[in-house]
Design a protein around this nucleic acid. Structure first.
Lengths: 149, 149
DNA sequence: GTGAATGCAAACTATTTGCAAAGGT
DNA sequence: ACCTTTGCAAATAGTTTGCATTCAC
């Protein structure tokens, strides 16, 4: 199989392998979207992904971006995150593990690490409600240092 | 001022008073939307609010529902909550304090009470990042009792 | 009476679908 | 060669805007 992009990214390779394993075809448009998602350090809207990915696949259509995002989030390689303005951003799963600081002024989204253990919080809730909690999303809203002036 | 609805709700009255205080007019469409929001025990989409509120104000337009929701959430009497399907629900602030259990199968959203004190979690983050946290959104994703079969 | 608020229609934005053409295996 | 995937155009869903009319004050 011929090499398409000169930069190669192990995260991209891993997802490509998974796609192949499941019988999906490794197309140029899919690679381009994947490349953009895996090299990004924040969450991107479909339109932004479209613009960036055309660097790798100039004929890429926005529709294909949507379809690829849907495929990848179904496989849990990317996560969809809700934005204050009502539309959605997408980020690779490791980035989007549910902990965000969102500035209500400049709208920047900061990931914060750690804190994966919310079991003190979650365990009693599971017991009381019978709900089986598989994942969590925690967003903290406020003002970033720069916007507190 | 003449009584419009036979049922009267102290929560509705409180918000009406606040609207008046700020110089907004107490119109029938606004009352109808407010009535629906304050008597509901879950979060509603604008369309649902529109349908229900026409019981109180038959000429109510969907546009006015949106405008009223925007006004009320600006005053923080209602909160907008993100739904998995991409559109939004609105609920009175007491209901929507940011804690949801969302079932990935039947998509029902359950509010869970208490747990307002996340300061153990939030304080260290504020210290480390310089972020000023004003509010939080916590969603737990998983399976409700009925969908665990 | 006056200006804020409403309802309609139309605009707009984000996203999805139908279908013929292109491309991976 | 086959059948998935693509890109386009058009459809759809949620939400916002322009404007003449209505209504609270």
């Amino acid at each position: 199989m011929k090499k398409i992009f000169n930069m190669s990214n192990p995260k991209v390779e891993r997802v490509l392998a998974d796609l192949k394993r499941l019988g999906y075809r490794l197309t140029r448009p899919r690679r381009s979207v994947l490349q953009v998602l895996m090299e990004a350090d924040d969450c991107l809207r479909p339109e932004e992904i479209h613009v960036r990915a055309r660097r790798y696949c100039p004929t890429l259509g926005l529709v294909t971006v949507y379809r690829t995002l849907s495929l990848l989030s179904g496989m849990d390689h990317v996560r969809r995150v809700h934005r204050e303005d009502g539309c959605h951003g997408y980020a690779r799963t490791e980035l989007a593990h549910g902990h965000h600081l969102i500035c209500r002024d400049c709208h920047q989204v900061i990931e914060f690490p750690g804190l994966d253990d919310l079991s003190l919080l979650i365990d009693p809730i599971e017991r009381e409600t019978g709900f089986l909690v598989e994942d969590h999303l925690l967003e903290l809203l406020g003002l970033c240092p720069a916007c507190q002036g």
